[in-house]
Structure formats: C-alpha cells, structure tokens
Amino acid sequence: MSTAHDDKHGEGERRHDLGHGHGEAAGPVVLSVSDRHPRVRTIQVVRPRSEDSSFLAATAKGLGITLKHFARNFFLPMRKAQARSKAGAPTDDSWRNEIETVQYPEEKVTYPERFRGLHRLMLRDDGAVRCVACMCCPTVCPAHCITIIPEESENKGIEKRPAVFEIDELRCVVCGLCVEACPCDAIRMDTGEHARPVEDRADAIETKDSMMGRGIHSIAVQGGEGPDWRGHGVE
C-alpha cells in the first residue's frame, strides 16, 4: 500500500536538498564526487522506511500508541496528589497513570516557600499591628494599590500606626516590592494563598482587619517599647 504521490513528493524534496544543501555541513551523505564538477555527486538516498510510507502500517502503529496511552490512563489508578504536585520526573510507584492534571479546588499543589501570595500584616507581641505607617510601601508600589491613612498611636514609643491600610488585590502586580521596602517586617506575602475570586470589584480590596487576620507574631525585633535591634533598652 505504498502511495505513489507521497514518494513523488519526497523525490522532489530530495532534489531540492541537493541543489541548496551544497556546501552545508548537514546534507545528504555524499558517496563520491565527480572530478569534473563538484556538484555532480553520488549521494546516499534516504528512502522512507516501508512501515512509514504505507498508510496502513503507520496508522496501526499510531493507533497502538494512542490506545496504549488511553488504556493506561483509563485503567490505572490516578497518581497520588502529593506525587502529582511535585514537578519533574516520576520518583515513586504511585506515578502509574500519565495524567498530571491537578483537580484544583480539591487538590492543591504545595507552592515553593518564596511564593508570593495574599498580603498579611504582622502583629506585635500584644496583637497590635506592626506597621508604623512609614509610607515606604505605598511609595515603592509600582501599581499604586496601597492606601494608608496614618493616625497617632496611643503608645508614645510607636508614634504612628495605620488607621486605614488597604491593598487593591486587583491592581496589585504581586511584585513583592512592598515586602522588600518595609523596614519593620510589618507586611508579608508568605500566606501561600491566591487572591480570591470575587463577584464585586470592591470585594477584592484587602482591609487592615482582613490582612491582620492572617497575621502572626514576627520574631524580628522592632523599635518602640522593649528591646530593639540597636540594643537600646537591652538590660
């Protein structure tokens, strides 16, 4: 069942190669070159293998491959979620099925440690917000999505704190510059959570309360009351 038209086509391409492939490193294998003219050569003709030039055999081969994949994915159990979440080559026996799809809401991949997720505001030991409203982060933010309205803190050692601290997660480009800019480890993006899907744009604005709700105590030393990193107040 070899196909006449395909062979003819292949022949034409080979002649094409001969004309233009001259002098190039990659070309047909030259068996001998005429001593009269360098372009008159005997070359090794690459004929398509018979199993490739016949529709039937090639079709059967291709069907075998796809059927194998189908059977494998259909009958073998799914991979374990943790195994699938790891990128890279299969390492353990649970990688039996070829399907890598993660069923997102039910299964989640564990992100790398430095994944930048939703913002959070860190807390002092007494649970107050660590932010001193220094305005470094709104200044550096390339998306201008941080809104801070400062107010005076009752604690004279702290002086300022944010009355309003809002981040519009729809405008945030998740660059992490705010975290870099913060002098007192008050804002972090290490929650490992995505910005949530919302039905109203207004709902995408993270407020001080929602970000403090995700906050934890920082072990970094901060000014104001108690010991600070300069050593002041250390007994």
Binding site: T3, A4, H5, D6, F55, T59, L63
Partner: peptide
C-alpha cells in the same frame, strides 16, 4: 474516535489521491 484523535489531516490532493487512486 480513536482514529480521529490519532491521525493528522490529509491534504486535499492526498485525500483525492487516496480516494480515487487507492
């Protein structure tokens, strides 16, 4: 379905050749 998702599309001339000449 298996065939449909395995084989690539013929060219128009290949199609006619397959039908009439083969």
């Amino acid at each position: 379905l298996l065939i449909r998702w395995t084989l690539p599309r013929f060219r128009a001339d290949q199609l006619m050749n397959l039908g009439w000449k083969l």
